[in-house]
């Protein structure tokens, strides 16, 4: 790994910020896991009751859909904190730390743009996503609530990332050279 050294000493709060955000990511991820567990449990219960001749639970299907949406949107924040989204490195790895810092800065600004738009749409979401979801019994905008939460957290994440890259607090790692050779 060719490493970029930080250009100026990162401020003390950045470390605390990173720790806090990682803890939040663990918390939302645990929430997503709970959604998945709930989906599994209510479906097992439904299959069991139906096949014991006790009648199926009609609310299980719509609730499963609702929990699935929550599961995905809650995981959205953790996906970025844990670096789980797909990126290509064959092109960027041809460049040194300088250009890579610029690339990563553009990436952080793009992330900020997308998440800020999602967050700023909150009033529209609340105004439009009306109507009670059949058999779930809550207003439709509750489907989007965890998306807004993740988008808000990610806006902060990308903003700090962009500032840290611009001021040289973060090192921009360059991908391994063996990857270049394979292309």
């Amino acid at each position: 790994m060719a490493r970029d050294t930080t250009r100026s000493a990162p401020p003390g709060w950045l470390r605390a910020f990173d720790r806090g955000m990682d803890q939040l990511a663990t918390a939302t991820l645990t929430g997503a896991e709970l959604m998945l567990a709930a989906m599994l449990v209510i479906n097992m219960l439904n299959i069991a009751l139906r096949n014991l001749g006790l009648g199926g639970l009609l609310w299980v299907a719509p609730w499963t859909g609702f929990l699935m949406v929550w599961c995905v949107f809650l995981a959205f924040f953790a996906i970025y904190r844990r670096g789980m989204d797909i990126t290509l490195a064959f092109f960027t790895s041809r460049f040194g730390p300088g250009p890579n810092r610029v690339f990563r800065l553009i990436g952080a600004l793009c992330g900020l743009l997308v998440c800020a738009v999602l967050m700023l749409e909150t009033p529209q979401i609340i105004a439009r996503q009306r109507g009670v979801l059949e058999l779930v019994g809550v207003q439709r905008y509750w489907l989007s609530a965890p998306m807004v939460l993740s988008a808000a957290l990610l806006s902060i994440h990308f903003l700090v990332e962009a500032v840290a890259l611009a001021l040289g607090w973060r090192a921009a790692a360059v991908a391994d050279e063996t990857e270049q050779l394979q292309w």
């Binding site: 996906i79 970025y80 989204d85 797909i86 990126t87 290509l88 490195a89 092109f91 960027t92 890579n100 690339f103 990563r104 553009i106 990436g107 793009c110 992330g111 743009l113 997308v114 738009v117 700023l120 749409e121 009033p123 529209q124």
Partner: peptide
């Protein structure tokens, strides 16, 4: 964006937002 290492979800989203801006859908929130 993919080429310069922007993650796939963000790159797709920015492309989509750019297209929405192009046909006037990004004029207002």
């Amino acid at each position: 964006l993919m080429l310069i290492g922007v993650p796939v979800i963000i790159a797709l989203a920015v492309g989509t937002l750019a297209a929405m801006a192009q046909i006037g859908l990004a004029d207002s929130l």
